[in-house]
């Protein structure tokens, strides 16, 4: 599904990713943990195609295609989805028109006609239930005036609408209370399937109680320094990141 090989990236001349490698197979859930500033969010942005980042080396293969050769739109249409840590507010663009444009973009890529109104609204209704997204939020401007929890639920709603092959969740747990965390996690878990992969980026182990990963990786200073099963997350929670850092130095 995704094969990252020795990826190096920088922003404004500061080197952030320093040779990161990671392979994700279909149906797998991988978690990336790491201290602040280790490059977790940079990895998410680079994979989604944010143009401020300079790729300085390495390769990324996504489902047999060169991901780094595609622009952000093409990556999304090819089946990659990024749930933002800080979802962007777009005043004046209704949530429903926004998601409709996204769905139709994907359909265009697949050679399909734009979705019909009835089918679209039925789909919205079904997917909104998944994350208990309030009906009134559909007609409001994208993320404008949404609470932290509503924004994250809206991200998962969009993910459900677009049915990606690979979803990257960038600190989706940040700013969530325990109820919202459960709702968001339930939404994600409902979408797990043998064909769909997830890359869950988080600072805390807590999220991984709800979205149980197959693999856990620790990112420190732009590299994955340790990989293991879900028990690695518990060990980190117990000992902190300093333990790993000391371990590397030693």
């Amino acid at each position: 599904m995704l094969k990252i090989n020795a990826l190096k990236a920088s922003v404004e001349e500061a080197s952030i990713l320093k040779g990161l490698s990671l392979t994700i197979n279909p149906g797998e859930v991988h978690a990336i943990m790491g201290p602040n500033g280790s490059g977790k969010s940079t990895l998410a942005s680079v994979l989604a195609g944010r143009e401020e980042y300079e790729i300085e080396g390495g390769s990324v293969d996504f489902d047999g295609a060169d991901l780094l050769d595609m622009d952000a739109t093409e990556r999304a249409r090819a089946g990659l989805f990024l749930a933002f840590q800080y979802p962007v507010e777009i005043p004046g663009v209704s949530n429903i028109n926004f998601i409709r444009a996204a769905v139709n973009g994907k359909r265009e890529h697949e050679g399909l006609e734009p979705i019909k109104g009835k089918a679209f609204l039925d789909m919205v209704k079904e997917k909104a239930q998944l994350v208990e997204l309030d009906g009134r939020l559909r007609n409001r401007s994208v993320n404008e005036g949404f609470s932290g929890g509503e924004k994250k639920r809206n991200e998962i709603f969009q993910m459900a609408m677009l049915e990606p092959k690979l979803a990257i969740l960038d600190e989706t747990d940040s700013g969530l209370d325990i109820d919202a965390l459960r709702i968001v996690s339930d939404g994600v878990n409902a979408m797990r399937s043998p064909e769909r992969s997830f890359l869950v980026i988080t600072h805390y182990q807590r999220l991984l109680d709800y979205i149980v990963p197959d693999f856990v990786h620790v990112l420190v200073d732009g590299r994955i320094v340790r990989s293991g099963g879900k028990e690695l997350a518990l060990e980190l929670e117990d000992k902190g990141y300093d333990w790993i850092k000391e371990d590397i130095v030693a």
Partner: peptide
């Protein structure tokens, strides 16, 4: 930021700009 957000959902660059114009 808004353009990247829309594009990360599969909306084309020109379509994303058109949406922002309509909102503006």
């Amino acid at each position: 930021d808004a353009l990247f957000y829309a594009r990360s959902r599969g909306v084309g660059l020109e379509a994303a700009k058109a949406m922002l114009v309509h909102a503006f």
